[in-house]
Design a protein around this nucleic acid. Sequence first.
DNA 1: AGAATTCCGACCATAGTGCTCGGGAATCAA
DNA 2: TTGATTCCCGAGCACTATGGTCGGAATTCT
Lengths: 156, 156
Amino acid sequence: MLGNQTTPAAFHVSTRGEYGMRLMVDLARHYGGGSVSLHAVAEREELPEAYLEQLVAILRKAGLVLGKRGAGGGYTLAREPAAITAGDVVRALEGPIEPQVCTAEGDPVFNCVREQRCGTRLVWLKLQSTIATALDGMTLAELARQTQQQDVTVAP
Amino acid sequence: MLGNQTTPAAFHVSTRGEYGMRLMVDLARHYGGGSVSLHAVAEREELPEAYLEQLVAILRKAGLVLGKRGAGGGYTLAREPAAITAGDVVRALEGPIEPQVCTAEGDPVFNCVREQRCGTRLVWLKLQSTIATALDGMTLAELARQTQQQDVTVAP
DNA sequence: AGAATTCCGACCATAGTGCTCGGGAATCAA
DNA sequence: TTGATTCCCGAGCACTATGGTCGGAATTCT
């Protein structure tokens, strides 16, 4: 392509985050009811099962889900739904919340020589903390519950 | 690559947004002092001038800057620095703030059939409004001023 | 006229996205 | 023990986005 203007969308969450979140909410809904197979999730959520395998592998390595092999096996949440936040899921699948390398989470990295005269660092810092706070404030329990009842009315 | 785990970073702002924001803050600092050439900006901010041309073209089409050709020409902000927000700049360069297509800005699009039973839509909705509020709350005037004084001390 | 500078569009290399496919290993049931 | 089920693992692949470069036209100032 070229000097393209059609910049698609800012802060877009890829299918990793999207599908992964749906997977986790699905597991939250069935929490306490034994293992859930990826096949079942893929069917309910209408997602490609082979692709979900990749995503759930990441979630397992992040310690968010437990896998059980064999017939009757499947996945379960590693902790109760109220103890897993949207931030946990997003960070596992999409990486650390980090608008810029100089605004990484946790450690205030000072690897940029322009640091002091940088007029834009504040933007990305604020953004980082804002996003993190929002995501860390939502648990899978809430998300699973919110959709039990059908009233998804959000004021703009 | 393959089933890669090294997911780089979530909510990463590309160089379009990064460089563009630095360009705009630079223009804000020189607001009222006539046109500023891209050459000067590129030198001060240590950015590739040819690439900046592309970015500033987008900003001009978005009505955020004005270009003046010829010797002594350059760019100026189209409005006063206090009337341009970080959100304006980011939206122009990176596209609308839209974590998911079903959570586009402005119009609550209902193009998703899963809508009602979708447990994750609330996450992206909240994220969208959170990000937009943060970015729209910062003006170029503030950013330009903040770095005049050297105290960039932000509590984590 | 000549220099400066914006404007415009083509081109290109690399990496990330969004999957598919094949096969191995564990577990359960008949 | 055989087979079905399911997780687990790694390779491959098409497409798009990213992050630029380059050459040249048009405009304006001196």
